[in-house]
Write a protein that binds this DNA or RNA. Structure first.
Length: 168
DNA sequence: TACATAAGAATAG
DNA sequence: CTATTCTTATGTA
């Protein structure tokens, strides 16, 4: 598995991919966090190899995205190495949310298990593919930001970016 | 309107 | 089984 770090205005994103596609895109803003993520990879028995050259496409897409382009990452091959079947369903559903649009946990839940809105949040909190799976476009039913594991600032930033209020 | 609380789905330990 | 989570609905003031 290969990985690299992509820097953006609020920190960095650790990208990791297998031979099949992108597997992780985790937010890191400190050396400590990076270390933590790497530890968890190690524990999962992944062989890590830094190789920036493997991420031409990803870097391209991310830099376009942070420039405010309507980049959906829908063409990016993904490879889910973690996650339960339910989580994958949630992630796939969240991924269908178009750029700039927002869904609510409830509406997502209705499409999946009918009333497990809380479990939707739980599943999204374990989203391994920040931005690519636009969990930041999922808001609470009154339109407000609820919690965000990777940091509310990131969620807020991403939303503002998509609304064109930020030029990165 | 604001705050406390119950309910309810799925997962990790 | 219990705790936790990117929730929602309801009751009370």
């Amino acid at each position: 598995m290969f990985c690299t770090i992509f820097g953006f205005p609020l920190g960095g994103i650790l990208l990791a991919k297998s031979s099949k596609g992108l597997s992780f895109a985790e937010y890191v803003n400190s050396h400590d966090q990076l270390k933590k993520v790497m530890e968890s990879f190690k524990r999962r028995d992944f062989s890590i190899e830094f190789d920036r050259k493997k991420f031409h496409l990803e870097e391209e897409l991310f830099s376009l995205y942070f420039k405010g382009k309507r980049e959906d990452f829908t063409s990016l091959p993904l490879d889910f190495l973690s996650g339960t079947p339910y989580q994958k369903k949630v992630w796939l559903e969240a991924r269908k949310i178009p750029y700039g649009k927002t869904e609510t946990y409830k509406s997502l839940a209705c499409k999946l298990n009918h009333k497990g809105y809380r479990s939707v949040g739980q599943a999204l909190s374990k989203n391994p593919l920040l931005i690519i799976i636009p969990c930041h476009r999922v808001l609470s039913s009154d339109g407000g930001l609820r919690g965000f594991g990777a940091g509310l600032e990131v969620k807020d930033f991403l939303l503002r970016l998509e609304k064109g209020e930020v030029s990165a």
